[in-house]
Amino acid sequence: MTVPDEATRLDAFRKAQHLAYAAAEAAAAELRPGMTEREAAKLMDTYARDNGVNEWFHQPFAWFGDRTAFRGPIAWTALRGFNPAFFPGGRRLEEGMAFILDCAPVVEAAVADIGYSGALGENPVAEQLMDDLQAHRALIVDRLNQGATMAEVSRAVDALCRRQGVEPRHKAYPYNVLAHRVEVLPGKPSGLGIARFGLRSVRELRRQVAQGRAEGWSPLWSSAERSDHPPVPGLWAVEPHLGFRDVGAKFEELLVIDAEGRARWLDDDLPHVRRWNARKTARKAA
C-alpha cells in the first residue's frame, strides 16, 4: 500500500501508535497478582487482534519485577543483544512489582512501537523513574533541534542518566539502541515472523541498514560512532529505559524528524505524558 502525502502518512502512524497504547493500557488494567509475563503479553495480543491487527513489527513483550531493570541473563549483550531472556517468561506479578509492556503492531502498513511502564500497586522507585523520563523526552527533542548529531543526543541521554544516578538500560537492547527507525512497510501484509519479530518488518529494517550504510547513516540510533550523523528525516521509535537497582521504567513512542531535520514527538496524547501533566496539576493544587 502506498500512503500519498505526509499528513496522511503521519495520521496512519498516529493511529497505529494509538492502538498500540490502547492495547497496553487494556492489558495493564487486567494485571493481577500471580499473572505471568506470557499472560500479560497475550492480553495485548488479544486486544490488538480484536482490533484488526494481524501483523507485528514485534509481538508483545512484558517484563515484571527485576526484569524491568534488565538485570541478570536478560542483560547479556553477546549476540548483539538478541537474547532469549528478552521474551516474556513465567515470572509472576506480585503486589508492588514494577512492570513494562511493549508492543509493536503494524496497522495498515504503518509500524508503531510503544513502551508502557507501571507498577501493580505502590512502587516509589518505579514512580520516580517514570518522573525522571520526562526530562529525557524534552532533552531528546531540544538537542536534536539545537543541531546535535544523533549520537550526541544519545550521549546527552547517557549524561542525563548519570546526573540522575540511574542506568541507561536501553544499552541492553539489541545494538544498544536508544531508538530505531520505522517506515511504512512495502509489499503485502504478512503474518509470518521469526522469534516474535515480523518478517516484513525485519526485511524493511535490513533494507534501511543497507541504505543507511551507503548514505552514511544508521537506522539504529545509539551513542556509537555509526550514529554520528545529522538527524535523518523519518519516524523513529525512541525508547529511553532507566534502571535503578532492581526496578526499570521506559517509554517508547514515535518521533518525527521532518525534511528540514526539525524534530517533534508525533503525538502528545499518550499515557506517560498525561501522567506527568496530572502530577504537575496535583503538585500545583498541593
Binding site: P124, V125, Q128, R163, Q164, G165, F244, R245
Partner: peptide
C-alpha cells in the same frame, strides 16, 4: 542539586 538527587535515591532505598 546533585546532592539532593543522591538523597532522593537514598530515600528510595
Amino acid at each position: 542539586e546533585a546532592a539532593e538527587r543522591t538523597a532522593t535515591l537514598a530515600r528510595l532505598i
